[in-house]
């Protein structure tokens, strides 16, 4: 089942990329840590930016992660509900907080 979805997405994506684009930008997959909330991070955060942004901010304290998530929702209007936002924040603090420089 997972494979079928994957293939569908693959077809969907390649069609969209095959426009008259002169510039073909690469796509990277980043080694995001396993843990509760990872899937939400992949779904919501990657709507607008790559995981590179997250890894690059690893090591900031809880307050800064709170600020960042808040900034995404309030300034950039990321459509993340409160419950998901909390889970995303917990994931980021646990896996990319001050202990994970």
């Amino acid at each position: 089942m997972k494979k079928i979805i994957f293939l569908l997405l693959l077809g969907f994506s390649t069609n969209l990329f095959a426009s008259d684009s002169k510039l073909n930008l690469p796509i990277y997959s980043y080694p995001l840590k396993e843990g509760k909330g990872k899937q939400l991070v992949e779904t919501y955060c990657q709507m607008c930016h790559s995981v590179g942004y997250i890894l690059n901010n690893a090591g900031v304290d809880k307050k800064t992660w709170e600020h960042i998530v808040h900034h995404m929702i309030h300034d950039f209007k990321a459509p993340i509900d409160e419950k998901s936002a909390k889970e995303i924040l917990d994931y980021l603090v646990k896996n990319y907080g001050t202990k994970n420089k």
Binding site: F6, S13, I27, Y28, S29, M47, L55
Partner: peptide
């Protein structure tokens, strides 16, 4: 964008560059 998120979340594609050397 959504397609890319789901896309990159999937495993095992060789169409995607693996950023293996990418750590914090």
């Amino acid at each position: 964008g959504l397609a890319i998120s789901a896309f990159t979340a999937s495993v095992g594609s060789n169409l995607i560059e693996k950023a293996d050397a990418f750590t914090v």
